[in-house]
Structures are given as structure tokens and as C-alpha cells.
Design a binder for these strands. Sequence first.
DNA 1: GCGGACTGCTTACCT
DNA 2: ACAGGTAAGCAGTCCGCG
Length: 873
Amino acid sequence: MSSQKLDQYLQPSAEDQRKEETLEKKRLVYVPETPENLPESFFIGIGYDGERHSAFIKLYEPTRRKIYHWYDNTNHKPYCLSDQSVEKLNENQSLMAHTGLDHLEAVRKYDALRDQEIDATMIVARDPLSIGGRPIGCIRDIVKAWEADIKYVENFIYDRRLEPGMPYRISGGQLVAAEYEPSADALRAVEEFLENESEEYRALAHEWIRLLECPVPEFRRVALDIEVYSPIATRLPDPREAEHPVICASLLGSDGKMRLLLLKRAGFELEEELPEINVKPEYYESEEKLLVELFKVLLNYPIVVTFNGDDFDLRYLWHRAQRLGFGADQIPIEMGRDVASLKYGIHVDLYKFFFNRSIQIYAFGQKYREVTLDEIGESLIGMGKKEIEAPVSDLNYGELATYCFRDAEIVLKLTSLDDDLIMKLMTALSRISFMTIEDVTRQGVSGWIRSMLYNEHRKRNYLIPRPDDILDLKGMTVTEAVIKGKKYKGAIVVEPVPGVHFNVAVLDFASLYPSIIKNWNLGYETIRCPHEDDLCRNNIVPGTPHWVCKRQKALESLLIGSLRDLRVNWYKPKSRDKKLSQPLKSWYNVVQNGLKVILNASYGVFGADKFALYCPPVAEATAAIGRYAITETIEKAKSLGVEVFYGDTDSIFLGSPNPSQLEQLVDWSRSSLGMELEVDKNYRYLALSSRKKNYLGVYPDGSVDIKGLTGKKRHVPQFLKKAFYVMIDILSQVKSEGEFEAAKEKIKEIVKDCYLKLKRHQYPLEELAFSVMISRSPGGYVKTTPQHVKAALLLVQRGVEVKPGDLIAFVKVVGEPGVKPVQLASSDEIDSTKYMEYISSTFEQVLDALGTEFEELVGITKLESYFASGEEG
DNA sequence: GCGGACTGCTTACCT
DNA sequence: ACAGGTAAGCAGTCCGCG
């Protein structure tokens, strides 16, 4: 059936329209009332009720596995702060005339930027939008205000000292924190490794232990995926228009319940049994009934998990339901500008979470390279999307259902992987950042750190500074970056000593930057502090004119420092402790990973201009101290008679150090720098070329570290990658200097084999394809048109949709423009010469280190002439 | 009009 | 919307060249 005809059929008939009008208009959305009493339940979500002018929190009760809402009954109100007195503000006509103003209240605050107590006025409003959020006429536009850009629900969390992810009870209508005491074991250990720290520091560490030791419940959840009819196969349906019907919905619960809802359509045969999946399909005569049923399921689960539900599934459902005449109280979805949330439970969009670069790199170690359900599913749980031959709209019921169901299955399995690791990671991050799971999964690491610091400010009655005040007082940077356009000088990379070095030890500083922030008391408060006496002014950061305060403590230093210490001394060792049970070990691993993500970003955020506590001198000072630490350490190593072959940021590669030399170096670092230097790894041998960030390290057991070499980069064609790894395999077996000659002979064979296969077109086109990510839409490249964009433009010409983030697979061909998308190319137009160049440069990186010229090894000139006179053209 | 030297853009990587 | 440093390949520009 043609798409056109089908679309016509899908227009509602007169009879359908009558049915629609008689659709039961009962209130569908169940909003749970606050119970008078509720046993231990976890605070996982938050919302603001505009009608009741009140925040409410969503509590997950783990026995009944249901959500309960608790409405604020403490009369918390939105507010911002002014440095003017109440009397002065009373004279401000526009403020006093503002309909949203509730009242003014004099308060004392501590201004950390100036290190003094100040008088301020709380401007209390009736609703959050009056403070800020409307395009015009907000209170924050009338008076210079502090703390006016913080979301109301965040203010509510900080002010009421609430802890997202932690257990609470409702007792006689009141919300009370459920007491949780960490194990004596944990408390004792923390006391031990923090014995030399201040009282204040130890108290903070205790708080973290309480938050991070507390068990996480099992979360009942449902994975949702929908399919929508589209008349044009290559175009995705627009969720804001929601023009076409929802034809299939899959719902997979962690409780084992499964639903598969299908819309009956003319021209397709009903299939009652779906052999591929073990679920009975439900056919619906009308889309309304399908949606009603779907909404009922959404209202039954505390957590709904989607992949891109914010921008597609839930958004589409919301608009579609509106279009079909559902009333607001019949749709269980709350639609924001960028977020789709739920009225009853919470919505986790895995796409947003996996998209987070820090999560991708540090939590999942680059296991997935593209942020697509197929790639993530394939690499984390070994389950990719179902392949389909035709557009979704043309599939028969069975194929459509299996396709849709598989997506939901991947989503559910991702959240269940490794004993619900992802749910636990979200909870851990939620507790560290004082944000709900819904927010933590949608914000970047700078948002988490901001929230963590804001919370501590409130806890201590600190005024949260305005970004312009920080910048005015602390200024910009003074060092010059190596890279044009960067703000300040970063880390040092030591010039490598080319060659093969046997018996190499790699030493590094245990979380260098967080250690620096801790030891040097760095923070926006303390860098270039206001005190004018020598005590502070003489405490100079090496290589900069910046001084650091000796009088007050920076919150950043306390928080980042205590998290660092807990990770290094407690969570990381515990995650490897063989005496612990598997679930406990995996929880410790989750926490240490969460901490890693946050600590890794903890320095960078201060140099990121969108960070709420942006303070360039803090970032600059951190990097400068890092440079100082590594250069001093290199000098010390040399003075001990140890050769330094290479180093990058926080590591040094040492040639055959003896135990005594290592010990002296480590001791020196502890006493002179106050930094923990440790042996990270030992290599049987290390192959260095003259290129920085580029090496091959072989461990005693024959496993290898490959860093920066082209052969391992994502975009490199398969055939070359395979050849490269065969070479690596040969090299990994080399045990002594003398064995390199034989290895080189073998490598020579690989390369020759590669050449010949290339020449004879023996590689399938797919193996010859470069695959490069396109970071904008193809039209967005105005300065230059790189090759992958040229290929993408050829695809677009043929009606293929190309979105930012897509991988473009292209091959190099003879003639203009030199590239073609792999789908459009044929074997005989491959530009063999270009590929030869690529092979040689890839191998050269390693051969350089072995002191061998590529040409000399392979005798390239002969081959080239063979090519030139050969069967080409 | 063409080619080499140069700069800048883009991607992927390292810490 | 964490940072800066490095490698590689290519696109585009400038300049000299009878």
C-alpha cells in the first residue's frame, strides 16, 4: 500500500469523530494525596504546584514500590536578596508596586568575597516567576539582586536541608529525615585517615560518608518506546506538530510486566502470536483508546525510562493527546521547554544521561563512541536495535512490534545492567550534588558542582556571589596559553625521548588537581583575597602573581578535598576489597566512579565562563601549581640519577628506577610538595616516537597500552585498524632488544599483504571507509568544507537525512571531490595511492620508535613504481 | 594559472 | 557548556613566478 493512501485512511471518519466526542472524559490523572504517615521512602523527585503555590516532593516507598507526594507545609517562599536596607527598598516605587512581592525581611549574611558579615534584605515573593523567569517585569530586573537565578525548587532543597536520594518518613503530616548511621567500620576508617585534618574538614567528610554509605533501594521502573506513522519514510515525525498517529507503544517493567499496544490499521493482518518476543500484542481500534491505556501504565510506575523521551516520545505523546482533545487532567505528562516530566513519578531520559561527556568518558570509559541506542546497547549489554528492511510505517504488525519492543528492552536492560548500576550511579550523583535524579541526569557536571557548592553556601549562611562580582574582584588570567585563543597556560607535556626503553616505571600524582585545590586552599574566596597583610600576600602561587588566603577556608577546597580523600582512601580501595559481598563492592565502585567524574571536572569548571562560580585565577593557579609539581619532580628524579623519558600533566615515565630511588622520590614528594606520588604501572618496554601523547607501552604480561596512535583512532578504516592490531600483537610478544629484528620482518609482511589486498580490491568497501563524526548539520560549515562534510552533502543530495552527531562513512576515490559516501561508491574508483599514504603514516608512528624508516622496511619505492605502471585506470 | 609555504579549521585524542 | 595540549589531514590563502 502506498503511503499516500494509508494516510488518507488514517484521517478520522465521521463515525470515528463521533466516537472521539463520546470518549470518556473522566479525570485520568491520579495525583496521590499526601498521607499522614509514610514509612521510610526515598526523595527522588520534586515539583512546584502553581495552584497551591507550593513545592512538593516525590517520595518512593520501596515496599509498596509506589510514589507519594508530600506538599511543603513549612510555608517556604521564593525570594532573592538585596544589599539595600528594608527602609531603602520601601522607597522603591516599582518594587513596592510589584504584584508578586510578598514582604521584605532584614537578614545577616556572610560575604565570602569580602570576608565580612553584611546586612541584606530578603525580598520574598508570592511565586517563583515574580523573582525571575518572565520576559519582563521581574523583581530581579527592578533591583540589583543576589541569588535570583537559582531555580525555586533548588532553593527549597537547600533551605530546608533536604537531601535528594536519601530516605525520609512522613509522620503526622510532617516530613522527617530517616536516621541513617553509617557502619562503625566506615566511621573508624575515616577518623583514621583524616586524623590530621581540622574539625571542620572531618565533619564534612562525615556528612559525605552518611550520604554515600546509605543503601539505595531497588527502583520499580518501566521502559517506554513509541513508534509513529510517517508518510515520508526519511523524515522523522515532528513531536511539536504530532500530525500522525502513534501506531505502536512498548512498555517493559522492571517488575516483569510487559505491554505491547498496537493501533489497528487497514491493509495489515492481525498477528496474535509474536514468536520473537514473549508478549501478547493488544490491538486498539482507536488511537485515543491506545493512549488512554498507555497513560494508565505511565501512572502506575514511579520511574519511566526512555531514550530521548524529552525530545521525542513523551513530547510527541503530549502534543498528540492535546491534538486528539485530551484535557490537561487526562495527560499524565508535564511538558517543559526542554524537559518532559511526569505528574505522578519521575522521567529519566537515558539519552541525556549518556550524552553527558563526563559520563561517557569517565563512568563508561569510552565504551560507547556514538550516543545512539544501537551503539550504547551494543557496547554495554551486547544488544543492538533490531534491523528493519522497510520504513517503520510500512512494517507489518509483527515486525513493527518486535522493532519497537526491542528498543524498550534495550532501555530497560541498560538500567538493569550490573545489578542496576546506572540507577545507583544516578542516585550517588544525586546525593553528592543535592539535585534530584531528574535534574542530575539532564545537567552537566558544572551544574552538579554548582549545586553542591550552593548547598554548602546556604548551610553556612554564606551569600552566594554574583558572577560579575567574582570577575570584578578577582580579574582575569595573566599567563599565556600555548594554544591560540585559550585563556591561560595549562599542563606541561614533557618532550619524549624517542626509542625503545625497557623496564619503565610510570609514576603519577593521585588526583593532582583536586589535591592542589585542597592543599593550596583554592577557591574564589581565597584567591587574591581582600586581606592586605603579608601573611596572605606572601603566599604566592609559583609562576603567577596570585596570592592565596591564609585566614579563611575556601568551601571549594573543603568540599573537593574531602571528596578526593574519601575516594582515594575509602571508596576506591573498598571497590576492590575481596572480603566484601558483590553488591556492596559494586556500590563502592559506583560511588568511586561518581566521585571520579566530579573530581575530574572540579578544576576545569573554574575556567569555564558559564560556570556560576567562574573564577579564572583559580583555574590558572591550579594549572600553575600542577606545572610546578611536575617540573620539580622531574628535577628531583634526575638528581637521584633516574632518567625521565616522558611525562604528561601529572605523570613521569622513569627508566629502570631501583626501589630506593622510587622510595626517595615518593618521600620527597610527600614532604616537599605535600602530594601523594605513586607507581601507577610498570612496562616491560615503552616505545616512544618524538610525538607527544603518543606511545606504546607493553606490560610484563604482554598486554598493551596504546595511547594516541592513529591506528586506534575511531575514524581509521577497518582494514587498517586490523593490520595495525596485528602489528601490535607481534610487538607485544617482544621480550628483549634482540627480538625486534624478527618482529620487523613480520611487520613487513603485514604491510605488504595490506598493499596487495588493497591493490587487488580484496577489501570490501566498508572496510575501506573512514568514519568521521559530523558535529553540525552539513550546511553549518562555512569556513571550510572538510572531507566528511563533502561526503555528507552528497548524501543529503540523495535525500538522506544527516544530523549533528552522525558518523559519516566515506571512502577516498579518484577524481573530484576525492571522497564518496561508502553507500554510493564502487570498488574500482578507490584512490589506492591515498590509502597507501595512510597505511605508511599509521605504521610510521610505531616504526619511528623502533628506529626504522617505513620506506626502508617495506621498500616502498618498488611498490610505488609497481602501482604507477600497473593495472591502474 | 600553478605550486609551495603558510595559516586555520576540524576531528580525535591525552591528562 | 569542565579545562588546556597535541597530532594529523585537509582547506583555503598568499605570494612568487618572466
